[in-house]
Amino acid sequence: MPPSRERGLRSVSGGSETSIEFVNHRSHPVTIHWLDYQGHRRHYAVLQPSASYRQHTYVGHPWVVTGGRGRALVCFEPTATPARAVVR
């Protein structure tokens, strides 16, 4: 999803367990944040260029990836089946 969607995203409870594999295809590190029940960012990981990271999560728990200075690059919403989120 585009980064502009972050404003309206927040976690909701009750979703099934799943996972997302984040892959950084950018030339700089990115930061992975979970968006909590109030829509606030919760820092989870820093992903170096060409690295990947698997995150256990739940359907209904959105994630945002940020670049330098905390600028949102992209948002992801987990699906019922494990997914791959490529950051370009």
Rank of each mutant, 00 (worst) to 15 (best):
G67V: 03
T79D: 13
P82L: 06
H25R: 13
E17W: 12
E6T: 06
A45D: 15
V87W: 01
S16W: 04
H61F: 11
P29A: 14
Y44S: 08
R7L: 12
Q55A: 13
R42E: 08
G70W: 13
T79C: 11
R42P: 10
V30R: 01
H25C: 03
R10P: 05
W63R: 10
V86A: 05
T66L: 08
G8H: 15
V46Y: 15
L47C: 12
R54I: 01
R54F: 00
V12Y: 06
C75A: 12
Q48I: 02
P62L: 02
V87R: 01
P49Q: 04
V65Q: 10
T66H: 06
H28V: 09
V46R: 15
S50M: 15
G8N: 10
Q48W: 10
T18E: 07
R41K: 02
P49L: 02
G15E: 14
P78Q: 02
L73A: 06
G15C: 03
I20R: 01
S11D: 08
P82K: 05
V74F: 04
T66M: 12
V65N: 11
G15R: 12
S50Y: 11
R54P: 00
P78S: 03
V23Y: 02
P49V: 04
V30I: 05
V46E: 12
L73Y: 04
I20M: 09
Q55Y: 11
Q48R: 13
V30Q: 00
L35I: 13
R10V: 10
P49E: 03
R26N: 07
T57K: 06
R5H: 05
S4L: 09
S52N: 08
R88T: 15
L73T: 04
T57D: 01
A85K: 04
P49A: 01
G14E: 02
E21F: 02
V74D: 02
H28G: 10
F76E: 08
Y58H: 14
